[in-house]
Amino acid sequence: MIQKYFPFDKNYLLEKAQLSLEEELIIHLIEHCKSYYLRVNNPLGIMDDTSLKIMEHQTAYTDRLSEFYRHLCGVYRFKFGDNQLELLFDGTDHIIKYRNDWRTAFISWLDDLCEVPQFIRAVLELTVFYPEDRKADLAANRMKAYIEQYFGIRFYRYRGIVEMKIA
Rank of each mutant, 00 (worst) to 15 (best):
F119I: 04
C73A: 15
E125I: 01
E86H: 10
L126S: 03
I95F: 09
Y61K: 04
C33Q: 00
Y36T: 13
T127G: 03
K144H: 02
F89I: 09
S35E: 12
L124F: 04
D49N: 13
T92L: 12
S108Q: 09
P131Q: 05
D49R: 10
L29M: 10
H57N: 06
Y37M: 01
F106Y: 15
Y76P: 00
F80L: 14
R39A: 13
Y130D: 07
L138H: 10
E125T: 13
R121C: 07
Y69Q: 08
Y76V: 06
A140Q: 11
L85K: 03
Y37L: 02
E132H: 06
Y69L: 08
Y37P: 01
D82E: 08
K79R: 15
E31F: 01
D90K: 01
S66Q: 14
E31S: 12
F129N: 03
F68R: 08
T50S: 01
P131W: 06
S66D: 11
T59F: 03
D133I: 03
P131E: 04
E67C: 07
E115C: 12
E86V: 11
K135S: 15
E132Y: 11
M55G: 02
L65E: 03
S66G: 10
K97G: 02
R142D: 11
T59I: 13
T127H: 02
E56L: 08
W102K: 03
P131S: 09
V116A: 12
R70V: 11
F80T: 07
K144S: 05
D112S: 14
H94C: 01
R103K: 15
A145H: 08
N141L: 15
F78H: 09
F89Q: 05
I96G: 00
T62N: 03
A60R: 15
I107S: 10
V128C: 01
D90P: 00
V123M: 09
H71M: 14
T50L: 02
M47C: 07
V116G: 02
L113G: 02
L72I: 11
F78I: 04
I95M: 05
L72Y: 11
A105T: 10
A136H: 15
F68E: 10
V75I: 15
N100T: 10
I120A: 09
S66W: 02
F129V: 04
V40C: 00
I54P: 02
K144R: 14
N41R: 11
R99Y: 03
I54S: 04
I54N: 02
F80P: 05
H94L: 02
G81Y: 09
R142P: 01
D133G: 03
K97W: 04
I107F: 07
K135M: 04
R134W: 13
S35Y: 05
E56Q: 14
M55I: 09
P43F: 05
L87M: 13
E31M: 06
D137N: 07
K53Y: 07
S51K: 09
K144I: 02
V128P: 00
F119D: 00
L29G: 04
V75N: 02
D48L: 04
T104C: 07
W109G: 06
I30F: 00
R39Q: 13
V75Y: 03
S35H: 06
Y76E: 06
H94Y: 08
E115Q: 14
V128Q: 01
G81M: 08
A122K: 02
K53I: 09
R142S: 10
E67H: 12
E67W: 07
L138G: 15
F68K: 04
G45T: 08
A139P: 04
S51I: 09
T104A: 13
L138C: 03
Y130H: 14
E148W: 05
S66K: 14
F119Q: 00
